[in-house]
Amino acid sequence: MRFEGKTIVITGGSSGIGRGTVDLFLREGAEVVMGDINADEGSAMMSTLGDSFHFQKCDVSQEEDVKALMDYAAESTGGLDVVFNNAGAGGPRDAIDEISGNDWDFAMALLLKSVAMGIRHSAPHLKKRGGGAIINTASVCAFQAGFGPVAYSTAKAGVLHLTKLSAAELAQYNIRVNAICPGFIQTNIFAATVGANKEEALQINSVLGQAAAGAQPVSRPGVPGDIAEAVAYFASDAAGFVTGTHLLVDGGLLVGTQSSWDPEAPGMLDAILPEHLR
């Protein structure tokens, strides 16, 4: 019960990583306030998760919605201790030489501005509490090409830098700010990016699960609970001396090329040198 007596705001908590985090914090004794654009699922969760769960519809790309969520959380529970800025989607998939300005602006509002405003409008409530923790969802896409669309990846890189800057500015108020960088996590974000229906989403998740064994050292896909545990660490007193950094939760995806961890994979020299020189 690490979070008994604490109020946690989680955005994008109706599915995937967010839902896994909602469940963990409820198990650990917190009052959880979820903001999500999916009002139907939010209402359904209200009826099943008990009195410690609260829901308010929130479009995180709209500043007034984000402010209203933070104000509601503080007013309805008596204060605010932890914020998990998690809501997002894959966004536009266009390449840089094809994407429109409007699509770019949409991705930045959904994935970067939302985090900035989550920090902006939760900070006054955290100050009143004497401090707290903010955790932002970034991504392995922030580090190199090939893991996501250009707009999504750029926004997630922005989240990492925003995390550092915010940590520096808010340290004087005993507010810690950190980021989580998920790798391949079995959620519907990949299916939603391509507009898949429920049946197609199940197939996509199955394929991703099988592909994970060959894509990273840890031979299983990540699950929402893996990320939830990392969020709980940053939110807890155990991370009281940790701020302005990030945690990769990626099964080792970024440790190096496949030849660095798979003894059966050819190395770079194997690929370019004649056999008699290897």
Rank of each mutant, 00 (worst) to 15 (best):
Asp97His: 12
Asp97Tyr: 12
Asp97Gly: 07
Asp97Gln: 08
Glu98Leu: 10
Glu98Tyr: 08
Glu98Ile: 14
Ile99Asp: 00
Ile99Glu: 01
Ile99His: 04
Ile99Met: 05
Ile99Lys: 12
Ser100Cys: 03
Ser100Arg: 04
Ser100Phe: 04
Ser100Val: 03
Gly101Arg: 07
Gly101Cys: 13
Asn102Gly: 04
Asn102Leu: 09
Asn102Lys: 14
Asn102Ala: 15
Asp103Ile: 02
Asp103Leu: 01
Asp103Thr: 00
Asp103Lys: 02
Trp104Gly: 00
Trp104Leu: 01
Trp104Phe: 01
Trp104Glu: 00
Trp104Pro: 01
Trp104Ile: 01
Trp104Ser: 00
Trp104His: 01
Asp105Ile: 02
Asp105Thr: 02
Asp105Phe: 01
Asp105Pro: 01
Asp105Trp: 03
Phe106Gly: 07
Phe106His: 11
Phe106Lys: 14
Ala107Trp: 02
Ala107Ile: 02
Ala107Thr: 10
Met108Leu: 06
Met108Trp: 05
Met108Cys: 00
Met108Phe: 08
Met108Ala: 02
Ala109Thr: 03
Ala109Ile: 11
Leu110Val: 09
Leu110Pro: 04
Leu110Asp: 00
Leu111Lys: 11
Leu111Ile: 04
Leu111Val: 03
Leu112Ala: 01
Leu112Asp: 03
Leu112Pro: 00
Lys113Ala: 12
Lys113Val: 13
Lys113Cys: 13
Lys113Arg: 14
Ser114Met: 02
Ser114Tyr: 04
Val115Arg: 05
Val115Tyr: 02
Val115Asn: 05
Val115Lys: 06
Val115Asp: 04
Ala116Asp: 13
Ala116Leu: 14
Ala116Gly: 15
Met117Trp: 10
Met117Pro: 02
Gly118Cys: 07
Gly118His: 05
Gly118Glu: 06
Gly118Leu: 05
Gly118Pro: 10
Gly118Met: 06
Ile119Met: 08
Ile119His: 09
Ile119Val: 08
Ile119Lys: 09
Ile119Ser: 04
Arg120Gly: 07
Arg120Cys: 07
Arg120Leu: 12
Arg120Trp: 05
His121Asn: 11
His121Ile: 00
His121Thr: 05
Ser122Val: 04
Ser122Thr: 07
Ser122Ala: 15
Ser122Pro: 10
Ala123Gln: 07
Ala123Ile: 01
Ala123Gly: 06
Ala123His: 03
Pro124Tyr: 05
Pro124Gln: 04
Pro124Ala: 04
Pro124Glu: 02
Pro124Ser: 09
His125Phe: 10
His125Ser: 08
His125Thr: 01
Leu126Gln: 11
Leu126Asn: 13
Leu126Glu: 12
Leu126Ala: 13
Leu126Arg: 02
Lys127Ala: 12
Lys127Arg: 15
Lys127Ser: 05
Lys128Thr: 00
Lys128Ser: 09
Lys128Met: 09
Arg129Ile: 03
Arg129Phe: 10
Arg129Met: 15
Arg129His: 12
Gly130Thr: 08
Gly130Glu: 11
Gly130Ala: 14
Gly131Cys: 09
Gly131Pro: 07
Gly131Met: 09
Gly131Gln: 08
Gly132Pro: 13
Gly132Ser: 13
Gly132Ile: 08
Gly132Lys: 08
Gly132Cys: 11
Ala133Leu: 14
Ala133Thr: 14
Ala133Trp: 15
Ile134Ser: 14
Ile134Met: 14
Ile134Trp: 15
Ile134Gly: 15
Ile134Cys: 13
Ile135Asp: 02
Ile135Glu: 10
Asn136Pro: 11
Asn136Arg: 14
Thr137Val: 06
Thr137Gly: 04
Thr137Asp: 00
